[in-house]
Nucleic acid binder design. Structure first.
Lengths: 147, 147
DNA sequence: GCTGGCGTTGACGTGCGCGTCAAGGTCTAC
DNA sequence: GTAGACCTTGACGCGCACGTCAACGCCAGC
């Protein structure tokens, strides 16, 4: 199998494959004409890489999984090094989620405060001048914008 | 106030300030000798930028807040454009948190499965050969590694 | 033999928010 | 007058996972 076919079957690009080879992550045999030659095992390695990438793993973090498969193990995560990466990633995820939730709370508070202040100003401005028809219509329009 | 002092008072660097000016985010007056000259108002703008950055806002997302302050409003979020950025950021945060939690679940499942398979293999290997002293010791050691 | 589709290597570009020189100007203190 | 601390612009570097282009080689079909 040549590089184009492997890329297509794995749903990636030839450029990515050459990059993985450059990192030593997915080495390729060579045909007589210098073309890269891949087998079904390489497709499995590649699928492992792509799956972990979808989970947000960096390429270096996929290396233990790839090496585990290359060593002949049934799964990329059959080796201790892979399990360690799982654990590290889980704690990273926990930390990241907690940080984002904290930020979400803070931003939400700021947003609520800013909206309250805006409404207070609008109420003050609306109460200040004597009410007349077009002003009431404008307030009605503003309510519709809010929807 | 010159650039170094402003940077120090805001807890950032001169390089960052020059970059903000390059983006048109924090323009500076110039003294006769060509040095940048800042006032207290610039410090407030800068604090607004830094606060939002800590929340994960990109610099372009801070622009409406800065312009709002420059227009003389009491807070950077007193303007509709700023509120809109708040809303957008909140929905981005929600989406991001949900994605990370989904990923966390998936990774956690994979980790649990991989550990079960490892334990099954270890149990099989331990049950297969007749028990002897060094094997029992090895199992003991492995348990300690797990701690 | 020529076109078109594959492959090859090498090098530069991308986004983002700066860090880090380099080569010089300005001001203060001694 | 000179050392040292500050300032100026300009340019390249970084990390990461490639995209994109250039210039060329290999091979099948007409």
């Amino acid at each position: 199998m040549r590089i184009g076919e492997l890329a297509k079957r794995a749903g990636t690009t030839t450029r990515a494959l050459r990059y993985y080879e450059q990192l030593g992550l997915l080495p390729a045999r060579r045909a007589g004409n210098g073309y890269r030659a891949y087998g079904e095992a390489d497709l499995r390695l590649l699928r492992q890489i792509r799956t972990l990438q979808d989970f947000g793993f960096g390429l270096e973090e996929t290396r233990p999984f790839v090496e585990c498969l290359q060593a002949g193990h049934p799964h990329g995560d059959s080796c201790p090094a892979s399990l360690e990466v799982y654990r590290k990633k889980l704690s990273e995820l926990d930390e990241c989620i907690a940080r984002l939730q904290e930020v979400r709370t803070r931003v939400s508070e700021q947003y609520a405060r800013a909206e309250r202040e805006r409404d207070a100003l609008a109420a003050g401005a609306a109460a200040e001048p004597p009410q007349c028809e077009w002003a009431a219509a404008a307030v009605h329009d503003r309510d519709e914008w809010e929807r």
